[in-house]
Design a binder for these strands. Structure first.
Lengths: 231, 231
DNA sequence: AGTCATAAAGTCATCTAATCACTTGAGGAC
DNA sequence: GTCCTCAAGTGATTAGATGACTTTATGACT
């Protein structure tokens, strides 16, 4: 059952690994420029098209960005271990339910950890996103759904475990575009916000069980809304 | 906080997406052959190197495999939404602890779901990996650590939620190579196996709370073993 | 009939070279 | 100082070539 596929080494796979090692050894971060394709090809003594193929591998993973006319930059996924597949198609109705059920299973344990650890940066992010959501509800801002995603990320961040942050972020990203529709179907942004606020309170107060239950009932509610739509 | 990076469309990114759509529309699965690079280039009316760049993006994600002299095949990650970054370096000691703590937080909820759902395929896999592990312990087989990974995957599978299976698999893959060392440090394969067997019993019997606690104490034990090594 | 060896065709892997589109920085004019 | 223009550098895509690998077809032998 252990995954078995092509293990043949190619220059492009070795080069991709070498670029990752270079990014790490030079302490580069998202947004930092790398050498140009031509310079990298020279550094590793390969042809430009071969270097480009290697860099496209990295680009597919979000580890580098090509900027036309400007150069190659370290991408948003540099240093990240768990990823959302950027090329997977939008979930259908069944898959969306499954996704939300997965969240309903996982997020309570993340909320619990958040209430135990109460990482200050995560707490600050929770507060920030709650305030922003409040303002967006008041002004009818269309971007509320994005802010709600950020709230969930912030809860994960309050647990102080970067792997869990990546996991939650990956799950959320898979159906990011659907969140807008979910919010619309929910039909009550104030109610949704109140559930978020209650969860945040439990986390802030350091009540793991309450936080777990708040996260569960919030996600359970969302699952029910989406289930209802499927009938 | 929402990720912002290059949104400029290129042929290679459009082509990558088009190949994914082609794989889906033709119902292709891991291991199935695609058309040759040359034929794909002709199909999409682009030059071969451009097609190759697009396919390298997909290769980076594990969605296609290039086989020298043979052709392009659908890769192991086709259809998969949550991935482990194949190019991330091995975790250092701190990161390994963080990873295991993440598992300690998540796997109890997966075990709980497994005990609630008891998906037959997942249960069968659990039984199979336990029996295999038993045989490997008896014969001193070096591959025990691989089988133990499969056991954890099987528990996730028993929950019947494919997103959670991918999540668990991704987390496990991040530190796959370290599992060998973890098992060595644990020093007691029989004890480890007994913990697995106990967890499997709870799942089989449909006891969610017991399964959750079994998973937690098992992972907690592993975390302690690794922490001890760090001192 | 089946098996084995060889050659040809097809395919990937890497390279060289060219042209076009975009960005950045330097220099000059005001 | 600011603004504009141009040149240099950079990515994007194409065309073409050679070498390494795999698969298939054909012929010879048993």
């Amino acid at each position: 059952m252990t995954s078995v596929h092509s293990l043949r080494r190619t220059l492009s796979s070795d080069l991709a690994q070498a670029v990752v090692a270079l990014v790490e050894s030079e302490g580069l971060r998202t947004g930092d420029p790398l050498e140009s394709v031509k310079a990298l090809a020279a550094r590793f003594d390969v042809a430009v098209p071969t270097m480009r193929e290697a860099l496209r591998r990295l680009e597919g993973l979000g580890m580098v960005d090509f900027r036309h006319g400007s150069g190659i930059y370290v991408g948003p996924n540099a240093g990240r271990r768990v990823l959302a597949n950027p090329l997977q198609s939008r979930p259908d109705a069944d898959q969306l339910v499954e996704l939300l059920e997965a969240r309903r299973q996982i997020e309570p344990s993340l909320a619990m950890l958040a209430a135990e650890v109460r990482d200050p940066a995560g707490i600050a992010l929770m507060d920030e996103t709650l305030a922003q959501a409040q303002a967006q509800i008041a002004s009818g801002d269309d971007r509320l759904w994005l802010t709600n995603l950020d709230f969930h990320r912030a809860v994960a961040a309050a647990g102080g475990n970067s792997v869990l942050v990546e996991v939650l972020d990956s799950i959320v990203l898979i159906h990011a575009e659907d969140q807008r529709e979910i919010l619309r179907l929910h039909g009550d942004a104030d109610d949704d916000h109140a559930e978020h606020a209650h969860l945040a309170d439990c986390v802030r107060r350091g009540e793991p069980e309450a936080a777990r239950d708040a996260a569960y009932s919030h996600l359970d509610h969302v699952v029910e809304v989406i289930r209802a739509r499927r009938r």
